Simulated scan of single mutants.
Amino acid sequence: MNLSCAIIDDEPNAVNLLEMFIQQTTQWELKGKCYDALEALTFLKDHSVDFIFLDINMPHLTGMELASLLPPTTKIVFTTAYSEYAADSYLFSTIDYLLKPITLKRFLTATQKIESYFGNNEPARQPIQPAIDYDYFFVKSGKVLQKILLSTILYFEGEKEYVRLITGQEQLLIYRRLKDIEEQLSSPFVRVHNSYIINTKQLTKVEDNHIHIADKKIPISEKFRDGFMAEINKRRF
């Protein structure tokens, strides 16, 4: 696949290794090599690339600090010798997280993931097409048909053939699959996990690859992370 990229890393040996891997195993165009974050900011203002390899530990500005200054849509493959930054990387449009020293085997795995990402082979990245556009709907729970305002819903939690609907005041058990409910919802509702659909208007923060809604801590799975972050980035300063 023909993709363009840039490497941002203050270690020349690390840059040279990635460049060699790219040249020997891909058809990607390496448009630039930057050895500090300030140089990278200038380069990326004038050059468009599909994604960047970004080291985290750099002088002046760290990779995380640089990522926060880039457009939210910037696709990033983080590279670092430290695993503790992995959770923070999910706050950005992260495709992969490579731990140094990067082996050829690990790079080839990343290559497949990157090309799959840009090939749109991941159905969960496609935006959910709304089937309804109402501010309420009716839920049958037991023998009761109950009216629910969409604005009051915190999240849906799938439990095999059932779905638990959680509002600020009550919980209802619905005999539906989570996938069926997902197909009837649109923004601000987003699937974030095989077991969860959340109302983004109700979340209070995103931290350590988890969403906080009321007193509930909900995990974000890799499968649905990009769709969720795309929704969040629409309202990010």
Rank of each mutant, 00 (worst) to 15 (best):
P59A: 11
S187A: 14
K100Q: 12
L44S: 05
Y134Q: 14
K113C: 00
L61S: 01
A81R: 05
T152W: 06
F228G: 02
L98G: 14
K217W: 03
Y82H: 12
K33P: 03
K75T: 08
D215R: 05
Q169P: 04
L99Q: 04
C34Q: 10
F43P: 08
F92C: 03
V144Q: 13
T204R: 13
K33C: 12
D9F: 02
K205W: 01
A230P: 00
N199I: 04
A124P: 00
E207N: 11
Q129A: 10
S48Q: 15
S195G: 09
H60V: 08
K140A: 06
A40M: 05
A14D: 15
F138M: 10
R225Y: 15
N13W: 00
A87G: 04
I220C: 02
A14E: 14
I76N: 11
E207R: 11
P71F: 09
Y85H: 11
H60C: 12
T204Y: 14
V192T: 09
E231F: 08
V163N: 01
K217G: 07
Y162I: 07
D96P: 06
T25G: 04
D96V: 00
A230I: 07
I102P: 03
L98A: 11
K113W: 06
K31D: 06
G119Q: 12
M229W: 14
A67T: 05
S116Q: 03
G32I: 12
D36L: 02
L30Y: 05
S195K: 06
E161S: 13
A87W: 00
R191S: 01
H47R: 08
H212K: 12
G32V: 12
R191P: 11
L44H: 07
C5E: 07
A14P: 04
M58L: 08
A87Y: 08
K143E: 14
K217F: 00
L3H: 01
H47G: 04
L69H: 11
L150W: 10
D10C: 02
D133M: 05
G158P: 07
Y134E: 15
H210P: 01
I218T: 08
M64H: 05
G63H: 02
K147E: 07
L30N: 06
I197P: 06
L69E: 15
I153T: 04
K140Q: 11
A230M: 12
A131P: 03
A81V: 01
L3T: 02
L108E: 13
S4E: 07
Q171V: 11
M20T: 14
P188H: 00
